[in-house]
């Protein structure tokens, strides 16, 4: 009897989760429907975001491209910046120092990084990273906004390091000691062991860690909002070949940021388009995750062979 009740409870809670998820998607979809109808494919391909057009006439211009660009550029750029740091932290903690005071200190510092609320990162980015980037911009003759895609990526990179670092460290632990010792006995140096034994073995796990970090970067809202400059259009420098290098320093905006910013004071199609933006963000995250998983599966096989 007890056993049956217990099982029924488990099934019930499973069902509740499912109903909740279905409910969330359903409400999002229903709320996004008016904008899907009104905007059609211009939402996906439009490069201008003009909420005012909702009230002015027939040509509603609410395009998601600037925000897609912002989300994808900041998250991949931040991933790129974070990789060397995540790797070295993980290697240091996983291979070089396995115990001791400094190990415990560094390990808990990395864990602490992941526990800091994102608004604190935003504030720190605004008061520390922005002036540094601005000083660099003044020196190099780029308009000294300080805020922008680069600043947002730098802040994001620091935020996602703990995620990839801790997973990579776990994965490094899984590399069989026999393999490493065999390599050492053949006279390999530590660097050679890392490069030729550990890395190939752990490749898929490392990719999984990076994927998790990327997922975190894609959805991050608050910290990015505070330092990205919130310009709702594609950077002007993107269209001219001489100035393309300035693009990463120009202000932009991301999908989650525009939702957070405009949600409060929106209504009608504008509100509906913001909800559609949320759905698009979920879709983009899912696609990137899917591609990542395929890659992990592939490397997983070659890693074991």
């Amino acid at each position: 009897m007890n056993d049956r009740i217990f099982r029924a409870m488990l099934y019930a809670s499973g069902a509740i989760i499912f109903v909740l998820i279905a409910g969330i998607f359903l409400t999002l979809f229903i709320s996004a429907l008016p904008s899907v109808k009104a905007l059609g494919h211009s939402f996906l391909f439009g490069t201008r975001w003009n909420p005012q057009s909702v009230w002015e006439g027939e040509n509603i211009t609410l395009g998601a491209v600037p925000f897609l660009f912002g989300t994808i550029s900041t998250s991949f750029l931040s991933l790129l910046i974070s990789i060397p740091f995540a790797f070295s932290t993980a290697l240091l903690l996983g291979e070089y120092m396995k115990k001791g005071f400094f190990f415990a200190f560094l390990k808990s510092s990395v864990e602490l990084l992941s526990g800091i609320p994102s608004v604190i990162y935003g504030f720190w980015g605004f008061s520390v990273v922005v002036p540094i980037v601005r000083a660099f911009e003044i020196k190099t003759g780029i308009p000294p906004y300080g805020v922008g895609i680069m600043t947002a990526s730098l802040v994001l990179a620091i935020m996602i390091i703990p995620y990839s670092a801790s997973i990579i460290r776990e994965v490094l632990h899984l590399v069989p000691t026999e393999l490493k010792e065999a390599a050492y006995s053949l006279g390999a140096t530590r660097y050679e062991v890392i490069k030729n034994v550990i890395f190939p073995y752990a490749r898929s796990g490392i990719s999984a860690g990076l994927l998790l970090a990327l997922g975190r970067a894609l959805g991050e809202t608050m910290a990015v909002t505070m330092v990205i400059g919130n310009l709702n259009s594609l950077p002007a420098s993107l269209t001219s070949l001489h100035e393309i290098h300035k693009t990463i320093f120009s202000p932009g905006n991301t999908m989650s940021s525009i939702i957070a910013l405009e949600f409060n004071e929106s209504s009608g199609i504008h509100l509906s388009a913001l909800i559609q933006m949320g759905l698009l963000l979920i879709l983009v995250t899912t696609i990137i995750n899917f591609i990542g998983r395929i890659y992990i599966k592939k490397t997983d096989k070659s890693g074991k062979d």
Binding site: R48, W49, N50, P51, Q52, S53, W55, E56, T61, L231, N232, S233, L261, E262, E265, S266, H270
Partner: peptide, 8 residues
């Protein structure tokens, strides 16, 4: 134009 959120 006029509005609470604009295309700047």
């Amino acid at each position: 134009g006029t509005g609470k959120s604009l295309e700047w």
